[in-house]
Amino acid sequence: MLGGLFGRSERDPDDAESDGEQRSRPGGEQRLRTDGGATASASAGTDASILTRLRRSEFVESIPFWGPPAVLVGIFVYGAVAWNLVISLIGWDGLGQPEYTDFSLAAYEQLLVDPSFTSAFWNTLILLLVFTVLSLAVGLLLAILIDRGIRFENTFRTIYLLPMSLSFVVTAIFWAWMYNPRIGLINTALRGVGLDVLTTAWLSNPDVKLFAIIFALMWQFSGYCMVVYLAGLRAIPRDQYEAARIDGASTLRVYLRVIIPQLGASTMSAAVVLMVFALKAFDFLFVLFGVNPGQSADILSVMMYRVAFDRLQWSYGAAVATVLFAMALSVIGPYLYAQYRRGEL
């Protein structure tokens, strides 16, 4: 290991003088510590220089562990994002190979005047907002219900989280059947309770299409929000409930005034995950609609795939991808910064 090259000053018996814990050990034990085979090369200096060397050697020692994964992440994540940005500038389309000679912002200018980009952009924002708020609300409700000291808590929790373990390909097929206009469960149930007026072709009616997608995605993700909120709820000391109850507050008031305000961190982290998911949601829509969900349900992630991999307008697709990346960054940037400020990274 690299660490051996530098020796480890903390092994030097002289250094032991500066370390209370080490000094308290019987001297014989020190002689047994010879597993690494490296000998300490430098003798002790001042405490400060020992500390520096210790830090340095921990850094050097740590490289073999995080180095290779970091290189992979560097290439596949950051290298690819940078490459994508370059591709978006070179006006590449069709079956040939890209030529990295002429750079221009033409793809981005095209975005600004492309009506399908405009509608996909707004649909993405609607999806992001409504889906996030809805999933958070349902997840919070579930978490509060589960946290009421119920029986079979684990079973309920397992059932609510179950959709999250399924592929979007699977859930899209289920929901296409649920939404079937003639014999699907939703319309059958609506007719059953006399609400025939509400029945519609959920996945082809442009007025409700996007909402139908959001509802199905909420079904899949609310269990996730429940898990996050449940962890948040469990971290709140029980006596806070009790104190509020003694003050005579109703259950609803206890939750609204005391409990929910303390769930800010849970809300934030769940919201970030949901919003980023909304930006990359692709599989579910692709299974339902292929590359053409129609103007009322088109979102940027589907548009990116359609433009690049169906129409082979690589640079234009890369430009859409850059927009998506920027949107994701604007969600996670502030979040990571806040986490960093709170020392939670």
């Binding site: 560097g74 596949f76 290298g79 994508n84 930006l279 690589w314 990346f325 994701a328 969600v331 990274l345």
Partner: peptide, 23 residues
């Protein structure tokens, strides 16, 4: 270094698809 890893969790895969295919 950690921030770079954490940010990678949230990467929309669309933003690497074209280079990935090239790669």
């Amino acid at each position: 270094v950690l921030v770079l890893f954490v940010a990678g969790v949230f990467l929309p895969y669309q933003s690497v698809l074209v280079p990935l295919r090239q790669f």
